[in-house]
């Protein structure tokens, strides 16, 4: 459904993604594991066109999207929940959710999806009229995911959804990702937390300074020494 084909990305002279090829099949959940500055965020930003690639191609749902503007990619159902949540802090929860539906042709009938995400995150329903800026990090992360779902994505990209959150919230977010996966959502999850990444996804790529150093089924990756020593902390 989403394919990176030998994508190269530069920041000035820095070569941050090197011949990156990543593939996410329809209905599949794939993780992108890597430490800080490995290129996870750049990969997702490139997918949305926030950062342009210097060479290589991007395909989404059978179409070449390499040259499309961000809003055109969003219109095709490619939705990114960005790193650091990026809530509209002066908007209420409801207003944030409505912005999620902004690109939809049927955005005036978004109430149904609001009810769905409120069922998924009951905490957001309680705080529906509260300003996003006054909520905790975990709540803002739930809001960011909910806002992404409001866009009715065909493929959801999640950038470090557990970063900086308390373990109990991390577990809740991971649970949500697994539930979305069970419902058939196509997901590309970028995570530093290898345990979460491997628990959510059937397949994963390990990214090291812009290169894929390892890839495979989560169950197999979990047994490799690289993952064990680098990310699982034993």
């Amino acid at each position: 459904m989403l394919e990176f084909e030998r994508v190269n990305v530069h920041y000035g002279k820095n070569h941050v993604l090197k011949d990156l090829s990543v593939r996410v099949g329809e209905g599949e959940v794939v993780s992108l594991i890597g430490s800080n500055a490995a290129g996870k965020t750049t990969t997702l930003r490139t997918a949305l066109g926030l950062k342009s690639s210097t060479s290589g191609s991007l395909r989404f749902a059978g179409e070449d999207i390499t040259r499309l503007a961000t809003h055109q990619r969003v219109n095709r159902g490619l939705v990114l929940v960005p790193e650091g949540r990026q809530a509209f802090v002066k908007f209420t929860v409801i207003e944030n959710l409505l912005m999620g539906a902004y690109h939809r042709a049927d955005r005036d009938q978004a109430q149904k999806e609001i009810d769905i995400v409120f069922d998924m995150f009951p905490r957001l329903r309680e705080r529906r009229a509260q300003k996003a800026g006054s909520m905790s990090g975990g709540e803002q992360q739930m809001l960011a995911i909910a806002r992404g779902l409001m866009a009715k994505p065909k493929c959801l990209l999640l950038d470090e959804p557990t970063l900086g959150l308390a373990p109990i919230i991390v577990e809740e977010i991971a649970h949500t990702v697994r539930r979305l996966a069970a419902a058939g959502m196509t997901i590309l999850l970028a995570e530093q937390n290898a345990a979460v990444a491997l628990a959510c996804a059937a397949r994963a790529y390990v990214l090291e300074s812009g290169n894929i150093s390892l890839q495979g089924e989560s169950d197999e990756l979990r047994k490799t020494d690289a993952i064990k020593s680098l990310y699982l902390g034993n």
């Binding site: 969003v74 219109n75 690109h103």
Partner: peptide
């Protein structure tokens, strides 16, 4: 108004 608060997030909303 969303754009004034967070330009990139607004872009991600389409």
């Amino acid at each position: 108004y969303a754009y004034a608060q967070n330009p990139e997030a607004a872009e991600l909303m389409g």
